[in-house]
Nucleic acid binder design. Structure first.
Length: 714
RNA sequence: GCCCGGGUGGCGAAAUGGUUAUACGCACGCGCCUUAAGAGCGCGCGCCGCAAGGCAUGAGAGUUCGAGUCUCUCCCCGGGCACCA
């Protein structure tokens, strides 16, 4: 019988779903393990191989945990509300609501075909009213807590998406979604007060077991600066405050620089210590919305200040530094802490999102929609395209915006902006464990048992977007008493980027890999194992078409081995190789070093082929392979009369007694160069090693490394 | 400019409490099988050399009996942040 992945994979996927193999028993689970992966934006033509790379890596971890006795909960869903999905719908000329249904079908079919152990009963889609009802509820809680507020401000405006964006989505002056230039516009918008949590968001990072680069990115983004605020009197009355991290350079101040448009430009300030006159310049190197939008110019100690001073013919004084505290005292400065982090701009002038559940009344100002009236349904309108007027398309839908004030019952106007996509995804992991509940946003009992998330795997591109927002929302919910933890993700691991033959995959280059083709040709097991074999999971991988065959051969050899004649009875000869591999694979999976785990299994396979394995040996091997190639191992497990599903079988445990060697390779070196390698009994002393090495002459010096080598310096 | 990763065979990559560099896979070569091709199986495969041997982990220096691994200087590639005072 030939290995036929197409046949067995479909068969098992169906059976696993029918048997609810991957549904945890929420009520009586003894060792809950929440294995989370970032849910995809279903915006493109279908599941990208990059999604599959991430999902497979996360799934292998979860499958191993399940076999190690944990009650693993591995949910999935679609982050289908928002600009990305809307932009895609517009591109192909579809209505976003109609396109969502098409994408949903396609994505779920593909996600089923990759063989992950998803808990399908608990999926969520952010665009379903049953879900976004609670996204709106969340907004209202934030408003009630004083964490949602309106303000008129210079905001980021994407000239292509025709909406405002948060600072995090406009990094580097480019739209996070479409890459277009972002300009500044003065608009009144809804904000979330994430800055209230700046200190906590920063401090808690220290205790989190997260990929270090993500923690660093968050620290940089929060950008805490400790310094001082110093007041400069103006010559013709009034005063001006600056923020500095270097009050000790106060004696070197020769000018003041302020942001463009500042009312202080052109005035003369007075040095608080020396009384010297300091010109005030407007320059563009001073950022308008940071600190006090004014800096003291110290050409002697700051490069930018020096460059500015030289360009404007200002005297560059080399005044001495003062001790920090003395400087503060002399100039009357007071210690201040500033953050780079800005409040989270929530409003979007787009159609495809949850309407912000607020009503504006001329008399009563802004009022939240009563919770009994949630959800505020997004009406199906023909004209959903952004207009670029600074208003959402909903602003021209009279039946939508006409409302009555919940407070006074008078005529009022409903908010017509929708909320940011990142609000949808800031709390989805709370919903999963009881995804169908209709009475509450998330079930308190299940939250208690299953959260915080035990393992979260996703891309590093969300270092300062989704991961920061989720932490903030969780902290806010904690302070409102809804959850009893502050941090949603105990462990987070960033996976690397999958590239194709050294280049980034992109549609314009035409090198985007469609996983379906490979699954059709070689099966999901081959593709999964291949993706994980490329390179360390955290590093990313370089996909090469011709290399896929190597894994396909490997799985075929596994198939042939099991179908061949296995030896009856017991055979101890392979125990050493088997137990060494159990240890290696177990440890490598824990470290997400899947590439070397697979390599170790390839070596073991060769030993099994060369030896005389019994059924138990092969079953152990299959268990190790099961997280990587779940279908073929399940099929072969059945052929060997394995009990139940292999994926619920007990993970093998290595026994140190089989691994211990009684011999080692003694490396014999002369002047540090290897001359010979001989077998020697473990634990021998230097004298014995010298005798075994049998090197002529009297060495000047002998270096002996226990159980490893002997080096003669002559 | 600053902050993270990286630089090892023809290619993807192993090996970092210092001590046999190149595991595993791909490609390639030879052989077996086959009418043939492919698949499969076996063997070989860092570079130079007939060999003995020598040389090799981006470049250069240092520490050490011994460095891919530690220290310093520099170069290159990928990613992120950038007038944040």
């Amino acid at each position: 019988m030939k290995y036929n992945p197409q046949k067995i994979e479909k068969k098992w996927q169906k059976k696993w779903t029918v048997d609810k193999l991957y549904e945890p028993d929420f009520a009586s689970a003894k060792k809950p393990f929440y294995n989370l992966m970032m849910f995809p934006y279903p915006s493109a033509e279908g599941l990208h191989v990059g999604n599959m790379y991430a999902f497979t890596g996360a799934d292998i971890y979860g499958r191993a945990k399940r076999m190690q006795g944990h009650d693993v909960f591995e949910p999935i869903g679609l982050d289908g509300f928002g600009i990305h999905s809307e932009n895609y719908a517009m591109k192909i000329g579809a209505h976003p609501a109609a396109q969502a249904k098409v994408s949903e079908k396609r994505f779920y079919k593909q996600m089923d075909s990759i063989g992950n152990g998803f808990a399908w009963d608990e999926k969520v889609e952010t665009y379903n009213p049953e879900y976004y009802k609670w996204t709106q509820w969340l907004f209202i809680q934030m408003f009630k807590k004083g964490l949602a507020y309106r303000k008129k401000a210079e905001v980021n405006w994407c000239t292509s998406c025709l909406t405002v964006l948060s600072d995090e989505q406009a990094e580097g002056g480019k739209c996070e979604r479409c890459g277009s230039a972002v300009i500044k516009k003065e608009l009144e918008q809804w904000f979330f007060k994430i800055t209230d949590y700046a200190e906590k968001l920063l401090k808690n990072l220290d205790a989190l077991d997260w990929s270090e680069k993500v923690k660093i990115a968050q620290r940089n983004w929060i950008g805490k600066s400790e310094g001082a605020e110093i007041t400069f009197k103006l010559k013709d009355g009034g005063e001006l405050k600056v923020f500095t991290t270097r009050p000790d350079t106060i004696m070197g101040v020769t000018f003041i620089a302020v942001a463009h448009g500042s009312i202080y430009a052109g005035k003369i300030a007075v040095h608080p210590v020396t009384g010297a006159e300091l010109p005030v310049y407007a320059t563009d190197y001073v950022v308008a919305d940071y600190g006090t939008a004014a800096v003291m110019g110290v050409p002697a100690h700051d490069e930018r200040d020096r460059a500015f001073a030289e360009a404007h013919g200002i005297y560059v004084s080399d005044a001495p530094l003062l001790p920090y505290d003395e400087a503060l005292k002399k100039c009357g400065g007071k210690k201040e802490t500033r953050f780079r982090l800005r409040d989270w701009l929530i409003s979007r002038q787009r159609y495809w999102g949850p309407p912000i559940p607020m009503i504006h009344c001329e008399k009563c100002d802004w009022q939240p929609v009563p919770e009994s009236e949630l959800p505020v349904l997004l009406p199906r309108v023909k004209n959903f395209r952004p207009e670029g007027t600074g208003k959402s398309p909903l602003a021209s839908v009279k039946s939508f915006y006409e409302a009555t004030c919940p407070q006074c019952g008078g005529k009022a106007r409903r908010e017509t902006d929708v909320s940011d996509t990142f609000l949808d995804s800031s709390w989805y992991f709370l919903r999963y464990p009881d995804a169908c509940t209709t009475e509450v946003p998330f079930s308190p009992e299940r939250i208690k048992d299953w959260l915080p998330v035990d393992m979260y795997i996703g891309g590093a591109e969300h270092s300062v977007l989704h991961l920061l927002y989720s932490r903030f929302v969780t902290m806010a919910l904690h302070d409102m008493g809804y959850v009893d933890f502050e941090e949603p993700f105990t462990v987070f691991r960033a996976h690397g980027l999958l590239i194709k033959e050294g280049a980034k995959m992109s549609k314009s280059k035409g090198n985007v890999i469609n996983p379906d083709e490979y699954i059709e040709r070689y099966g999901a097991d081959t593709l999964r194992t291949y993706l994980m074999f490329l390179a360390p999971f955290s590093q990313g991988g370089d996909f090469r078409d011709e290399s896929v065959m190597g894994i396909y051969r490997f799985l075929n050899r596994v198939w042939v081995l099991v179908l061949g004649n296995l030896t009856a009875g017991s055979n101890g000869a392979l125990q050493k190789a088997i137990h060494k591999t159990i240890k290696k694979v177990t440890e490598d999976i824990a470290d997400l070093k899947y590439n070397t785990a697979i390599s170790a299994m390839m070596i073991l396979l060769r030993e099994l082929e060369a030896g005389e394995p019994v059924a138990e040996d092969v079953k152990t091997f299959l268990k190790l392979l099961a997280p990587f190639a779940p279908h073929i191992t399940e099929e072969l497990w059945g052929m060997l009369n394995g009990e139940g599903s292999i994926h619920k079988s007990a993970w093998p445990v290595w026994d140190a007694k089989f691994i211990e060697e009684d011999e080692f390779d003694l490396v014999i070196q002369i002047n540090g160069k290897t001359k010979r390698v001989i077998k020697a009994p473990k634990g021998i002393d230097e004298a014995e090693a010298v005798r075994l090495a049998a090197v002529d002459g009297a060495p000047k010096r002998v270096i002996f490394v226990h159980n490893r080598l002997i080096n003669f310096i002559i």
